[in-house]
Amino acid sequence: MTATPLETVLFIAFGAVAIAGALSVILARHAVYSALGMLVNFVALAAMYIMLSAEFLGIAQLIVYAGAIVVLFLFALMLIGGRRPAEQGRLTGGLAAAGSALVVVFLAEIAYLVMRLTGTAGAKGTVTPDVIAQLGHIQLLGATLLLEYILPFELASVLLLVGIVGAVMLARARRQSRQE
């Protein structure tokens, strides 16, 4: 995959924004700022998806993640007291240092692996950006999803059912315990 100079600039710019968003999630003192950092991260990733010829997923990313999920987080924050400082302190220095060290090692490992990547890993399929441009991303994705991936698709619906029932059960708990 080779990128044009414009694409390269955009990739780097959006990448920087995504990293900035992620860093502000873990560094912000206040949980609401963390949620906003998460929003920035999600939007930057959505832009990258669109550049990587995954238009449908880019839009879905905006609707599902940047829309629904961030809003749910903000609701929860407001519900349980978004005004007061979210936490008293960070982990003790030792634990945090050990955790960060683990993460740095992990990152170094992955980076090393990627740099050693032969570049032709895996067998190539037939869905080139040209094909996507010709047939349309949604058509291709829809046909694949409903013909080849029908079982995972149905499993995802079961999963959402579990989510709905579980969330309703946990949320309406108060009323149930008062009945006694």
């Binding site: 499993l155 079961v158 999963l159 579990v162 989510g163 579980g166 969330a167």
Partner: peptide, 9 residues
């Protein structure tokens, strides 16, 4: 994930 999420609940 189906089994995990059902068990969390």
């Amino acid at each position: 994930e189906i089994l995990s999420i059902a068990l969390y609940a």
